[in-house]
Design a binder for these strands. Structure first.
Length: 453
RNA sequence: UCCUCAGUAGCUCAAUGGUAGAGCAUCCGGCUGUUAACCGGAGGGUUGUAGGUUCGAGUCCUACCUGAGGAGCCA
């Protein structure tokens, strides 16, 4: 990595470097530019824990060996002040990270007064009010690094498989699926809605390019108030022409396994910082267990499961309805791998899903449920490719026909079976990182009660 | 929309209906290897808001506000 350094800060004699690569500078003089993470004083010794975005480094100032003004600056500098330290790097097992700097000089660029987030425990409301500063904390830093790596892995996965990135619009004229509550906004003298899915716009592109995906923000105005919901979240949605449900299951399985492997390969230090049980991620291998909705429903109807639901005040499972939170826990708790549940009842799923030719009451769809109670991470289906059937479904759902004319066109001009799925980035990141709250898996969370910062 | 819980110092939390407390942070002093350092000292309060009960309310009652967790809905 080549640091970008303004000419005014360059020095011919001392190299400016990053903490991530500090081991390569053992025994040499370097300059580190960053912020003060923490400070510990002991008489004639001051330990400065400096962070630069790539890691943490302990710089040690020892009184007789540094000039009095340098030592005094080290004593006075406050938490999160921006600074530049210069000194020699040496291996020392007593230092966090294994290397430390024997400090020779220090430049404080700006003194931070009363940094609000002290190195102690804080409540979620306080931390979310200070999200713009909380990003500097080690766990949040590790989490967002993992998110970044997973987003890069998603793009790499599709690029390597010849998918074309097709960005869907965020401003849309009408409801895509007719179910969710949408955010409404003024669009000159008309109304527009923030997109809740890119899928419908992706299907036409799929007929142009064969394999496509979109990756962007998605908006839901539902008043959900749980740790598994955000009003603004990121979703990646692939769509494949000439694909059936079995092709889709294989793609989703490959996708999940590849992303988890990438996190294990590139984010070990971050997963360790988050105290993630890595052995659980190492068990995420193909094949994933697959069962149908009817098989899953049979499990939930067992007397011992029904009595457990009553004991936990969970609403009882009714055959033909969708699974609740308790039901998802039951279906995933004994498994180490994600479970793929297929062929839900047609009437509880979206209007565009292809019915199973063997049983038209069941849709050719899949939900992938993550282990450890993280819930649905992937949802997808084969799409209806017959024009008349799709027209009938739009009418049955009471959707405005005029708004779907372009969508029906795809079934008039060279229609083929096709399939796709959507994956919620924050849910996936939460599962991989092993965190409790979805809102920490996005830099600036938007929830029912939060629009700041 | 419904159910449950919470709101006390900058932060995290104590306080049988009877004088408002501690740790961290901040400031001052001490210490040559600290690991959320430690030791001594100082400053810091309209107990979410408005009513009510009581000789007396942080504590009990009512309403409201704010937040959290869950349900439903969904990724």
């Amino acid at each position: 990595m080549t640091p970008i350094i303004p000419a005014s800060l360059r020095s011919a004699s001392v190299q400016t470097t990053t903490i991530r690569t500090i081991g390569a500078h053992d025994g040499r003089d370097v300059r580190i530019r960053g912020w003060l993470y923490n400070k510990r004083e002991k008489g004639k010794l001051v330990f400065l824990i400096v962070r630069d975005g790539t890691g943490y480094l302990q710089a040690v100032a020892f009184q007789p060996e540094v000039p009095p003004d340098v030592f005094e600056t080290c004593q006075k500098v406050t938490q999160e002040s921006s600074l530049e330290v210069r000194g020699s790097i040496r291996k020392d097992d007593r230092a966090p990270g294994g290397y430390e700097m024997k400090l020779q000089s220090i430049t404080v660029h700006q003194v931070a007064q009363d940094y609000p987030i002290s190195p102690k425990e804080h409540g979620p409301d306080f931390l979310l009010d200070h999200r713009h500063l909380w990003l500097r904390s080690s766990k949040q830093h590790a989490l967002l690094k993992i998110r970044s790596e997973i987003c890069q892995a998603i793009r790499d996965f599709f690029y390597e498989r010849d998918f074309v990135l097709i960005d869907s619009p965020i401003l849309t004229p009408a409801a895509c699926e007719g179910t969710s509550t949408l955010f409404e906004t003024d669009y000159f003298d008309r109304k527009a809605y923030l997109s809740q899915s890119g899928q419908l716009y992706l299907e036409p592109a799929c007929m142009a390019f064969g394999r496509v995906y979109c990756f962007g923000p998605t908006f839901r105005a539902e008043k959900s108030k749980t740790r598994r919901h955000l009003t603004e979240f990121w979703m990646v949605e692939p769509e494949v022409a000439y694909a059936d449900l079995d092709d889709l299951l294989d793609l989703a399985e490959d996708f999940v396994v590849t992303l988890v492997a990438r996190a294990l390969d590139r984010c070990r230090p971050e997963l360790t910082t988050l105290e993630r049980d890595i052995t659980r991620l190492e068990r995420i291998q193909k094949p994933f267990p697959r069962l149908t909705y009817d098989e899953a429903a049979a499990v939930l109807m067992r007397p011992e499961i029904q009595s457990r639901a009553r004991g936990q005040d969970a609403p009882p499972f009714v055959p033909g309805s969708d699974f609740g939170a308790f039901d998802e826990t039951v279906l995933t708790e004994t498994l180490e791998r994600p479970v793929m549940i297929t062929r839900y009842p047609t009437k509880i799923k979206a209007f565009y899903m292809q019915p199973d030719p063997q049983n038209p009451d069941r849709a050719l769809c899949v939900d992938v449920l993550a282990p450890e109670g993280y819930g649905e991470i992937v949802g997808g289906s084969q799409r209806i490719h017959d024009h008349d059937l799709l027209l009938r479904r739009i009418q049955e759902h009471g959707l405005p026909l005029e708004a779907f004319r372009w969508y029906l066109d795809i079934r008039r001009y060279g229609s083929v079976p096709h399939a796709g799925f959507g994956m919620g980035i924050e849910r996936f990141v939460s599962w991989v990182a092993g965190i409790h709250h979805l809102r920490e898996a996005i830099p600036y969370p938007r929830t029912l009660n939060r629009l700041y910062p």
